[in-house]
């Protein structure tokens, strides 16, 4: 019998603790697949965030080092500077990378750290119970904006990835989502490319993934997938934000 589907080598045979419909499980798998396909599992070191994905080390079968909330890219910088031939990635949520860790993020990108950052944007603070995130949309409810986010009071959602585009050290920035098979495929390609950028020593690469959080959005998984297209992607448009890799489309793209 031909096996058509299996757990990637870079994932442990564990059951995810994530909520039904959560994007983290899919994104974990995409990261693991990229690591497998590039054959870098044995020289990969990951830095998980504080947030829902704080337990990522229970899932990734690669070396993992914990970072304080928001500091993943600083910790990753330290690792990469000691072991420049290893492949270092961070996996961070919106609060981690775009609120408390903004300075660490911008400066890691600006130094052109040869690190791959996976930025999971679900517009909410999932683990702490659905408080306002830097990426919460205007009008969107949260446990700290009970009547919806008001730009004049709370600020407008921050487009961190766009901000990183002006940093000279960032080489590849793309925003993707995981709300359909096609989108997932595209996201996988982007993540793999972000690792390839590091392998080629080009500089800082980041993939932002618009990720559903049905629990805190108070929607069904299906509705939350639809809401990404109808609403969230209107504020955070999908696509390549910066690409100075010089790659032909085939390279890093897998198939």
């Amino acid at each position: 019998m031909k096996q058509v589907f299996k757990t990637p080598q870079s994932l442990k045979p564990a059951i995810f603790h994530y909520c039904p419909g959560c994007g983290h499980s899919i994104i974990h798998r995409l990261v693991a697949e990229a690591i497998d396909e590039l054959g870098i599992r044995e020289r990969c070191i990951g830095v998980p965030p504080a947030g829902c994905a704080v337990l990522a080390y229970n899932y990734f079968d690669v070396d993992m080092g914990e970072a304080p909330h928001g500091r993943a890219l600083a910790v990753a910088t330290g690792i990469k500077r000691v072991l420049p031939d290893r492949v270092v990635f961070t996996y961070q949520g919106d609060g981690d990378i775009a609120a408390i860790g903004t300075a660490e993020t911008i400066h890691a990108a600006n130094r052109g750290e040869k690190i791959t950052a996976i930025f999971v944007n679900n517009a909410t603070y999932g683990m702490t119970g659905g408080q306002m995130a830097p990426t919460t949309l205007v009008g969107m409810g949260s446990t700290t904006t009970p009547k919806g986010r008001v730009a004049a009071r709370d600020g407008a959602p921050l487009d961190l990835t766009q901000m990183l585009a002006v940093a000279k050290g960032s080489v590849y920035l793309e925003r993707v989502t995981v709300n359909s098979p096609q989108a997932i495929k595209k996201a996988g390609k982007a993540i793999k490319k972000a690792f390839q950028v590091q392998l080629d020593g080009l500089g800082f690469a980041l993939v932002e993934v618009l990720s559903p959080c049905p629990t805190n959005w108070k929607m069904s998984p299906v509705d939350s997938f639809k809401w990404i297209d109808s609403t969230m992607a209107q504020v955070f448009p999908l696509g390549v934000i910066k690409d100075e890799t010089g790659y032909q489309e085939a390279k890093g793209g897998g198939e």
Binding site: V47, A67, A74, T77, G78, I79, K80, A103, H107
Partner: peptide, 20 residues
């Protein structure tokens, strides 16, 4: 590395120490 802050620098220390 001249870090962007003391916070960043101590966290780089964490990473470097993890890496040996």
């Amino acid at each position: 590395v001249q870090a962007e802050s003391e916070l960043a620098s101590i966290n780089m220390v964490i990473g470097a120490s993890m890496a040996g």
